[in-house]
């Protein structure tokens, strides 16, 4: 017996590749430490999630909605520090082929 797949309509969700193991798959997922909205949601100033409301990665490994972080960095009281660890914020370069290499 042979099973031939002619075509396949599937449903998938996209996730940000935050590098974190997504153990709680069906839960809310991780939230942005600033707006408390899940990463795959969108920040308070956006209406569309995903590419329109991207994430930003810090070298300190903390991840935020980009818009949230930029707004925080823009305030004088931020002193350009990461909200989570108060280390100076340095945006990480994303390794485009990280996952590919990992595989």
């Amino acid at each position: 017996m042979k099973v031939h797949v002619k075509n396949w309509h599937a449903i998938a969700q996209w996730r940000w590749d935050t590098g974190a193991a997504d153990a709680d798959d069906d839960g809310e997922g991780d939230v942005c430490g600033i707006c408390r909205v899940p990463y795959e949601g969108c920040c308070p100033s956006c209406k569309m999630p995903g590419d329109d409301c991207p994430l930003i990665w810090g070298e300190c490994s903390h991840v935020f909605h980009m818009h949230c972080l930029l707004q925080w960095i823009g305030t004088s009281s931020s002193k350009q520090q990461c909200p989570m660890d108060r280390r100076p914020w340095v945006t990480a370069e994303r390794k485009v082929d990280r996952t590919n290499n990992a595989r």
Binding site: H9, A10, I11, Q13, R15, W16, D17
Partner: peptide, 14 residues
């Protein structure tokens, strides 16, 4: 590159 796919296995048609 920033995103991954997660399949919803019960849904869809083949």
């Amino acid at each position: 590159p920033d995103k991954m796919l997660r399949w919803l296995p019960l849904l869809g048609t083949i």
